[in-house]
Design a protein around this nucleic acid. Sequence first.
DNA 1: GTCTATAATGAGATAGAC
DNA 2: GTCTATCTCATTATAGAC
Lengths: 195, 195
Amino acid sequence: MDIDKGLYSRKQQILIAGAKLFHKKGFKGTTLQAIAQEIGIEGPSLYNHIKSKNEILSTLLLSNAQEFYDRMLEIKSTSETALQKLERLISLHIELTLKNPNAMALMLNEWVHLDAEDKTKYVNLRDSYDNDFQGILAQSIAEGDVADLEIDLMRFMMLSSLRSLYAWCAKYKNFNRVELEVTVKSVILNGILKK
Amino acid sequence: MDIDKGLYSRKQQILIAGAKLFHKKGFKGTTLQAIAQEIGIEGPSLYNHIKSKNEILSTLLLSNAQEFYDRMLEIKSTSETALQKLERLISLHIELTLKNPNAMALMLNEWVHLDAEDKTKYVNLRDSYDNDFQGILAQSIAEGDVADLEIDLMRFMMLSSLRSLYAWCAKYKNFNRVELEVTVKSVILNGILKK
DNA sequence: GTCTATAATGAGATAGAC
DNA sequence: GTCTATCTCATTATAGAC
């Protein structure tokens, strides 16, 4: 029983415990009994709050994917340069990683266990995000700020390191957030070589 | 039955099929029946070649982790500059990714399902590799080639994008390998900004 | 070495009392 | 809303014939 009962509704407690355990042991490796125990009730009691084990996963994944996509639309619609938008996207990843580290981990792998309908929704949201990300990257090449390299690969490498940041934050807990943002931006934009 | 019987021993066929299915559906989401079907036999027949389902996973993970570490020791022991060693490490990741894409995917996540003893071995190999990688990075900072930023984070971002490359290769099958290496090195070393 | 039959276990989900 | 008891099914692994 690790989760404060006073602050969160049972449903929220289940989602928090689910994210933590799905991250630690995988969706298939996590039992409902384990989730229930984490919040101090018995397994079958969960069914007063959820419809199925899969519902926990899909709620976590779809809400986070939706949040990423909503924020992308916001950033896309500003009148900044594409490079400024890229910097905002880096900040966005860091912001949402700090807010929801366990969910970030799930978004990399556990979506394969969604059932068909939710998987389609999830993949569509993710693909739309990736597409828009690449569109902004293309624009920043056109604007002369970014190097004209294989764009799929650039987008892929940027998103790979951004999407893995949850693991770094979990390991080095005493980092300074501002310094984290500055360093991540520098590594992505300028590379590791000394100028 | 996707795997040519003539070229590989049954044990090898099982490992190839296991890697493919563990990657696609996760270790816990893959049944022995599915692995058996992939090579054209029945589930229980697998036990003529393996001791348990877990043995398939541990063989895959430990042999690949060992190969990474052996190659690291080779590279470490050369008399090149640290920066040249970093470039060799980037090439190493690409080489092993192309040789064994499914195993690369497993190394990111599925190791959590190893049983205690193998998990310890695996984590030790991985940590040793990461340590040596960071040591070379530190040396290249000392040699004045690499920027003196938060070194844990630089190492982490480099390895995150290198370890995810299997997914890019799977999606863009018609890439040129030389161009891939050149682009990856450029993005990591010089960043995405136009010079 | 492969098969069919089956044991043994574990986990998602439901029923019904409180 | 939570509990205990139970159903049901899937899956790992074994036994023993061929």
